[in-house]
Simulated assay, not measured.
Amino acid sequence: MSAGIPPLVQDSGVPFDLFIQALTEQLDKAQAAMALKARVGKLPLTFAVKEVSLDLRAFVQMVDDDVFVRPAGPGDAEASTIKLALTTITKPMIEENAIDFQPEDPKFSLREALGEGKDSEDLQRRLERIGVRNVQQLTELRKTAGTDVIARLARLPVNRLQQALMNAAAPRVTQVESRTEAGLGGPDPVASNRVQITSPLLRAGRLALVRAAGETVPVIEAGDGSLVLAPLAMQLGCEAEIDFGDGDVGHVDLSTGSVGRMRDGRARP
């Protein structure tokens, strides 16, 4: 029987989450088959599985950061006993308790914030363990809990986390355009510029202050994560200072594709 099992599974077993998924998937198939039988056969009374209890004798071990289980064979007296009790859950209960899998904004990629180093994947897994799956969550948690708390819970070096927070919060110029509009006082057209800036620190209810070339840059539109400016021609290409409020200040050049930085080259704890 073991001849058809892959060597890796024989040695380490299977990840515990995959075991649970396979088990519940088969229960889903059984439930669907019973529902089909009741509908086709028009049975006035049938049976369903309410709860499933299993006592699994297996060996448990850690492989990297994953828990693996390998079922015990005959004569394996040192195996542990894993007790599983599966019960039913309704769709509203799933929607209430499950993770909200919204697509991550590509402008605020968590992987990009963590950098391209060889340890980035490990850092991302550590943040996901405490529920941080995108930059917006990381930014909000930094505001409510602080850098030290996040670093301790995720078991991350504080300086590495601060670098990630700095990269995540840095303002970025996503669009620069010039347009010609009709003048209010006469027929001569008036040139105007628009610059769109994104950052997870931007909020619709809190207007950021922007200065460039010694002058204030007018803000004509503000929303969650984005800002539209109307700079003067002399301010285009210049470095702008953005005061997000609460002590957060960023710098970015007003040119297409520019990626800015936070003040002092670090994220504020």
Rank of each mutant, 00 (worst) to 15 (best):
S53P: 06
S53W: 11
V60L: 10
M62R: 11
M62L: 11
V63Q: 05
V63A: 05
D66C: 07
F68Y: 12
R70Y: 07
P71L: 02
D76M: 01
D76R: 02
A77K: 11
A77T: 08
E78S: 03
T81S: 07
T81C: 02
K83D: 05
T88L: 15
K91H: 15
M93P: 04
M93N: 15
I94E: 15
P103F: 15
K107M: 13
L110C: 06
L110R: 02
L110D: 00
E112V: 07
A113E: 01
S120Q: 07
R125I: 10
L127Y: 01
L127T: 00
E128P: 00
V132Y: 01
R133D: 09
V135L: 14
Q136Y: 14
Q136A: 15
Q137H: 08
K143W: 10
G146D: 05
V149I: 14
I150G: 00
R152Q: 11
R155T: 08
P157W: 05
N159V: 10
R160V: 02
L161W: 00
Q162T: 07
Q162R: 06
A168L: 08
A170N: 04
A170T: 03
V173P: 00
T174E: 13
T174R: 14
T180R: 15
A182F: 13
G183L: 09
N193Q: 08
V195R: 02
Q196H: 11
Q196A: 11
Q196P: 02
